[in-house]
Design a protein around this nucleic acid. Structure first.
Length: 271
DNA sequence: ACTGGCTCCTGAGGGC
DNA sequence: TGCCCTCAGGAGCCAG
């Protein structure tokens, strides 16, 4: 269930091992991801050096001189660097063979992820062009959020999870940031005042950056590691805690499905 | 232009 | 032990 901090931690974890290395070969062991992996992708990147590993929203961008590989981890995807003699695991769908003999492996049991190619500027790609600002950037401000919410009747929780509004706020951190800022998740976006946006936006930034910082302690786990990095088990206040007492007031945390997603909140503290 | 609902998929967990 | 059922979830897509 990668949220933005996991994707950013993945980027930082693999980048030092990938950048400036040639891809000697790409093996497509299972190409049926969210969209089919282009069958000509191995030929396109063969012997080409990776210039950089970047991120836009939850997309990872492997940049080459003549184009870019777009990777998305979906909800069960992960990337690891492994020595070639490490046994492949079930659901290791893509193997990028590196010039140093190691391999970048894309693992994704549920296959909600994707691996695509674009020869043009990825910023203009259909999947990227319409994305909202990065949550940790200066462009994501209370004024921006408040302006975008004008006339929008969707629940604020769905609104902040809309990647056209702001990227990288997934289900877990949506619940957490609304709890932190005292906003009821079902409140219509247009009815969230500027003053409340001034709580919500910093809450999102704080929660996301805290998670990225925690992820930094696990960067070595991206090489020759079997398990998942443990940073995901960071302290959560409400997510997954239905029935448990609210840390602030003690009232039982409510669980409710909002927009097909389970949501957790305190009916006393969030209004 | 918005909005809500559907969809892809596998593994974990609960009930019996 | 084993089977069946339900649920989880990112985000594109489409119908209303």
């Amino acid at each position: 269930m990668p949220e933005l901090p996991e994707v950013e931690t993945t980027r930082r974890g693999i980048a030092p091992h990938i950048e400036h290395q040639r891809i000697e070969k790409l093996s497509i062991r299972e190409g049926r991801l969210r969209w089919p992996v282009p069958t000509d992708l191995p030929a396109l990147i063969k012997h080409q050096p990776v210039q950089s590993v970047d991120r836009r929203g939850k997309y990872l961008l492997l940049r080459f001189e003549h184009g870019t590989v777009l990777l998305h981890l979906g909800m069960s995807g992960s990337l690891r660097v492994a020595d070639a003699d490490q046994p492949l695991k079930k659901h290791d769908h893509l193997v990028f063979h590196l010039q140093d003999g190691r391999e970048l492996r894309f693992h994704d049991p549920r296959r909600f992820g994707c691996c695509l190619w674009t020869a043009s500027d990825p910023a203009t790609h259909d999947l990227i062009a319409s994305l909202g600002p990065e949550p940790l950037s200066d462009a994501f401000t209370p004024a921006y959020l408040h302006a975008r919410a004008r006339g929008r009747n969707v629940a604020i929780k769905n609104f902040i999870m809309d990647s056209k509004v702001v990227v990288g706020v997934g289900n877990i951190y949506a619940s957490e940031s609304l709890y932190e800022s005292g906003i009821h998740p079902l409140k219509p976006a247009s009815k969230v005042s500027l003053a409340r946006c001034e709580k919500l936006v910093p809450a999102i930034k704080t929660i996301l950056s805290r998670s990225i910082t925690q992820g930094g302690t696990t960067l070595r786990d991206f090489v020759n590691s079997d398990g998942e990095p443990g940073y995901f088990k960071q302290s959560l206040h409400v997510y997954g805690k239905a029935g448990e007492p609210c840390p602030a007031c003690g009232k039982a945390i409510t669980s409710k499905v909002i927009g097909q997603r389970s949501s957790f909140y305190c009916t006393h503290c969030q209004t």
